[in-house]
Design a protein around this nucleic acid. Structure first.
Lengths: 157, 157
DNA sequence: AATTTGGTTCTGTAAATTATAAACTAACGG
DNA sequence: CCGTTAGTTTATAATTTACAGAACCAAATT
């Protein structure tokens, strides 16, 4: 498989994005490739060869991405190869994970307020403020998503 | 300075949270300490001793956090020590950074759609859907924040 | 039953990260 | 100007990570 310069460039950018989110470099490149590839589904061999990573690195990356639900595969009758693709539900998941992360932060911060004993309550105020914002965000986000879905329907109609 | 078990535990949790966000372990622990400490401001020495990290690690961590605007310090007349504390504006910044990151992702995804050539447009649809959601989120987030600020005013009154 | 295909698992290692200890420096106090 | 305090810088040690290469394995093919 050959890729255009733009595709190669994008794979690197997507790679760096995912590296910053805690993925290993090779794993991040596999995500990039599956995303920018003209073909939506690629085999183990295609991935390994196109990205120039060893079979072991490819195996590890694919299994990691399968386990974390980022990709999936199909097979075809009379063909032992697996055809990997990005899980399309993955987008919503990715967004949800970011939001969950904020939730985790919020939980920690609430415990901070419980545990530390500051003489002057002024020091707690800003933190309380942020916590309550995150709580508000959590309640309002579903509404926002609903609203957007409505808008989207309108546009289609 | 002595910390309760709960405080020590929280420092580790905050540490792990920040490590996942790309901070070095020692840096992440310093953030944790400044957050859970009963005293809002701590000296270099207190930080170094309480966390049991070397002077150089402490120096690096504090300078890194100063440079990235996560902490700040005050001084007092006739006292050469600096008193470090978490920048309170930091909370909003932290949230903004997460949102910026989603914006970055969105930019990349838009370019993906431009660059890859998939025969079947069905494969582009879900991605387009996600992109338009992120766009919508970007327009609506300021409103949401404004709304929350209003609610907050009401509560105070 | 031997070989090929489509991987997986194990071992070694280069490179990067993280932290330490010790030497150093700049400011102040006596 | 000598010692102490408050840190910084440098050199280096320890740990972790990320991957390649090779051996390995199970299913299908010849």
């Amino acid at each position: 498989m050959t890729l255009s310069d733009k595709q190669l460039e994008l794979i690197e950018e997507i790679g760096i994005y995912h590296e910053n989110n805690g993925f290993q470099p090779a794993v991040a490149r596999v995500m990039g490739l599956l995303l920018v590839s003209d073909k939506p589904e690629l085999t183990f061999e295609e991935i390994s060869e196109t990205l120039n990573i060893s079979k072991s690195a490819t195996s590890n990356a694919l299994n990691m991405l399968l386990n974390t639900g980022h990709i999936e595969y199909t097979t075809f009758h009379g063909d032992r190869k697996r055809y990997f693709r990005i899980k399309s539900s993955n987008w919503r998941d990715l967004f949800n994970k970011k939001m969950e992360d904020l939730g985790k932060l919020n939980d920690i911060l609430k415990r901070v307020l419980e545990v530390r004993k500051r003489d002057n309550p002024i020091y707690d105020e800003k933190l309380q403020y942020f916590i309550s914002f995150l709580d508000y965000l959590k309640t309002q986000l579903p509404n926002l998503i609903e609203q957007w879905e409505k808008e989207n329907e309108k546009q289609k109609a």
